[in-house]
Each structure stands twice: as C-alpha cells, then as structure tokens.
Design a protein around this nucleic acid. Structure first.
Length: 477
RNA sequence: CCGGGUGUGGCGCAGUUUUGGUAGCGCGCUUGAAUGGGGUUCAAGAGGCCGCAGGUUCAACUCCUGUCACUCGGACCA
C-alpha cells in the first residue's frame, strides 16, 4: 500500500509522543537545528505562523493603547543586580558577554533573559510627574536563557517573544492592567489558536522572580501534560523601589508607581502542535495558518484544468490565504503533504468537477468532504474556515475536560497522577510544604489557582487541614 | 547538571563486537518516458574528509582517549 511510507514518516503519538512532536516540527518544516545547542532555525513555514500570531496580538495590544518600543539586548551586570528576587531567579541561566573584540569589558554584560531591568532603568529617567503615567509599552524581540534541556519551540536557549511592560500611578490601575492582559491572552488562545485555557494565579512557589502576583493561562496538551502558555505579572511597587522610580502625584507628594509585565513566546507554536496535531501531522487553526486553503488540480495535463484551477485560485486568494500546487507530484502525494503541514482546507478540482461546475473541499481537522458548486465557492470557504476553528476548539475542550480529574485526598491524588495523564483539581491549604510534598509524592506541580473557583471539598488534598482554595495540578512542560 | 540512547550522502538505516584492508541499501534528488480523484511506475544518473579532535597501527567507519551535538528520562525554567 502506498500509504505505508506516510504512516512511517511520523511516529504515532500513542507510541512515542516526544518523537511524534519532534517529527512534526522537522517534517512540517517549521524549524531546523542550528550549530548552537538549543538555538533553532525557524524556517519560513514556522516563522509565518509566528508572524500571524504576532500580527494579531500586536493589533490587540495597540487597540488597548500599548506602544511598541525596542530595548537593547545587553544588560550591565550592576543593573541586573538591582532587584534581589529577580536576579536570583534569572542569574543561573543568563549568558554573559565579557569581551568586546579582544578587550575585556570593564563590566560584563548579560544578554537579556527578560527586560524588566532595562525598562525600569528607562522609566526612572523619563517619569517625573503623574502626568507621565501610565506608560503602556511592549516589545517584540528575542531573549536568551541558557537552558539545560532544550526542545524545539517549547524550550530553546534563544526564543522569540513579546514582553509588555507597563507602569501606573496606582496599584488598582496596575492590577487591572495585569488582569486585562491575561484576558487578552486567554481570548487570543481560544479565538485564534482554538486552544481552551484555564486562567488563574500562580502559587508563590511558581511565581515570576520579583513579582507580587503571576497570572497564567494553562493549556492541556494531547499527552495530558500542562503547558503554561502566557503569563501576566503584577509587580506592585517592588521594582520601582529597587530602581528608584518616583513621580510627583496630584497632591505634590513623591510616590512610587506600580508596574506590570506580561509575555508570550514562540512556545505558543508548540502549544498549537500539541493541542491539535494528529498522527498525520499538524492541524493548524485557520487564523494563524500560513496557507488556509490549498488548491490541488487533478489530472492537470487534461485540457482546461490548469486554466480553470488558476481561475478558482484567483477567487480563493480574495477570501483567504490560498495556495495552488501545480507541481508534478501525484495528487495523493499532495494530499498527504498538505495534511502534514496542517493546511485547514483542501480544494480538489478535476475534469469531472469542472464538468459539473463544482469542486471538492476537504477539511483537515475531521476529513469531512464537501462537494461545492463553484457558484458558492467564496461563501463556503469562509463558512468552513469559521466552522473548522469552532470544531477545533470544541474538540480540544472536550478532550481537556475528559482529561481533568478531581482528587480529594493524597492517595487519590497519587493514583490519578500515576495512572491518568491530565489536570487534577484539588483543594489546597496554602502551605508550601504541601505543594512540595505533592511534587515529591505524586510528581505534580501546581499549575494555577483558577479565577473560577469550584467548591470540591473543605480539606487540603495533602495534609487534610482546612483549605479554601481549589487548584489545578499536573505534570507540566 | 545527573543518568540512558544515537551520530555513516538531504532523510531513514546496515556495516563496527569473536573479523581493522579504504562504504552499501531504501526513500528523496536530477534527466527521460508513461501515469494522474490518497504518498504512481519504469529506466538512466549525481551525491559520502563515516559528528569533531587526538592516539594506536603498514592500514581506522571499525580499537583507545577526549570533545561536541541530537534525543529520552530526572532536577531547573516560558
């Protein structure tokens, strides 16, 4: 059977999920390895996905009044040192520049792992009055973290991201901003990536270095592991105090402003792969798919097929990101190829279709086939692209829900964590010791304290003492 | 960082041990022909400092030492 090779090309996800993942990122031509460990080459098809993510998010940020800036990539060591928790959190994984040409630098420079310190240093210079606030800044850049274990898109030593940094006159305003951006990420994940997420707050243990509160959106991958997909931090005035950022308020008093930061990375691409992909490859949500519809002419050598295909292609281009494949490959080869690349819709057009003034449209997500009159082409494509996104989200949500369990005591927690991959909801007393113990005994970490709380018990899953917080737990990437 | 696995044309692998003797297969690629609604067929070609660096040897893909990368699991992190 001709299909044998295709099946072999991608390792089945049930057989070896990790290999399935790396097969996809390589074979769908999303990335390639470079000669530096943990630094990947994002290839055109992968980068186009990032560009689509970027375009949409950037629009959402700008709609809410944010401006893009560009900070340097180097941070002097003394600047990084200013906030104690922050430097302790990042120092173990920063890369240092020690020489300029052949000369040793007076002070070594760290390659930014994140830019809080740079923004703070800058804010200290430009903010004097309450009239200078708020500043709603964002930057698109790459950062470097010298990770020990690396995986394409999920954990690389250099990665692309977006980091928002805002500064406000009041704590309330900064807190509102933190939540607003969390909501923005959650909406983006669900509407554009078709990935259902749990919105919540991190425990103190999992909090960002230097933050007062860390909000997160947590998604569940196909293999039952959680993936932190974006974070939004409230800093209080901690950074402002450390960097001596002050402003004169309306009452002519000196005050410290309040800050936030929020970010998401190319890891989102990993989230898309591991949420929607299947054993035939990628399945891309239409909103970020570099190619939304691929047109495959059948029996292209026959009279009139190419002409008609080009005509249909022109029409497709007006309603979506379309591609026509006129290459010499067999139709079957092309079907498999674009399925592997996750193209949401495939349009087949052959002599029989032309005769009937129709085309065949096939969905990637569920393989459903539609025979569509060419008169309805544009409207059907538009309708199906929306439908694909909707059913992808629904399928992902159903799967996540079916992999979400409830544990009431430690034995139950250990049993579920051991046997059933997925999220585990359980009550928690708030003690760090219990959190550590659950990691130790059940191998799970706290994912978040969801904003939408459910009452599933009154006692801590670990120690049995009184508990009023319901948490999501799980194994995470 | 700790432990396991793997590095041989673009990709997937064989060859390595008891036998050290100058590299082979499949896919892909190029050319030609036929085919064309699920990875089509036939024919002819091109392509390899055997991860890198040392060492042993007349001779190393093969033995020894070191190193790098990828990968899986663990610890740490987006």
């Amino acid at each position: 059977m001709a299909n044998e090779k295709m099946v072999k090309a991608i390792t089945s996800m049930d057989e070896d999920f990790a290999k399935w993942y790396t097969d996809i990122v390589a074979k769908a031509e999303l990335m390639d390895y470079s000669s530096v460990k943990g630094c990947m080459i994002i290839r055109p098809y992968g980068y186009a996905i990032w560009e689509n993510i970027q375009k949409t998010l950037d629009g959402m940020f700008k709609e809410t009044g944010h401006e893009n800036v560009c900070m340097p990539m180097f941070i002097p060591e003394s600047l990084l040192q200013k906030e104690k928790d922050h430097v302790e959190g990042f120092a173990p994984e920063v890369a240092w520049v020690t020489h300029g040409g052949n000369e040793k630098l007076e002070e070594r420079l760290c390659v930014r792992p994140t830019s809080e310190t740079l923004f703070c240093d800058h804010y200290a210079n430009i903010i004097q009055s309450y009239r200078d606030l708020p500043k709603l800044y964002n930057q698109w850049c790459s950062v470097v973290r010298w990770e020990k274990t690396t995986r394409p898109f999920l954990r690389s030593r250099e990665f692309l991201w977006q980091e928002g940094h805002t500064i406000h006159a009041t704590a309330e305003e900064a807190q509102a901003e933190t939540v607003r951006m969390l909501e923005t990420y959650a909406r983006f994940a669900e509407e554009y990536l078709a990935i259902p997420v749990v919105k919540g707050v991190k425990t103190e243990k999992e909090r960002f270095a230097g933050a007062a509160d860390t909000y997160t959106i947590e998604a569940l991958m196909h293999d039952g592991k959680a993936l932190q997909s974006a974070t939004s931090h409230y800093f209080g005035d901690g950074f402002a105090r450390a960097f001596n950022i002050q402003f004169t308020d309306k009452d002519n008093k000196l005050a410290y402003p309040f800050q936030t930061s929020w970010g998401c990375t190319t890891r989102l691409i990993g989230a898309v792969i591991m949420t929607h992909g299947d054993n035939d490859g990628l399945v891309l949500p239409p909103a970020i798919a570099p190619i939304q519809t691929v047109l495959i002419p059948i029996a292209a050598h026959k009279e009139g097929v190419v002409e008609k295909a080009n005509e249909v292609y022109e029409r497709l281009c007006k309603v979506c990101r379309a591609k026509i494949d006129l290459s010499e490959q067999s139709p079957g080869w092309k079907f498999a190829e674009y399925e592997m690349k996750g193209v949401p819709l495939r349009v087949e057009l052959g002599p029989k279709d032309i005769e009937k003034n129709q085309c065949v449209i096939v969905r990637r997500d569920n393989r459903q086939k539609y025979f569509v009159s060419l008169d309805d082409l544009e409207s059907e494509i538009a309708r199906l692209l929306v439908e694909v996104r909707d059913s992808m989200l629904e399928a992902a949500r159903n799967r996540r829900d079916s992999m979400t369990y409830v544990a009431h005591d430690l034995d139950e927690m250990i049993k579920i964590a051991d046997e059933k991959p997925g999220f585990i909801k359980a009550m928690w007393c708030g003690d760090r010791e219990c959190e550590d113990a659950l990691k130790e005994k059940a191998g799970v970490t706290s994912r978040c304290i969801p904003l939408e709380q459910e009452h599933i018990g009154d006692t801590c899953v670990c120690c049995g003492k009184k508990a009023d917080k319901m948490l999501y737990w799980g194994k995470a990437y």
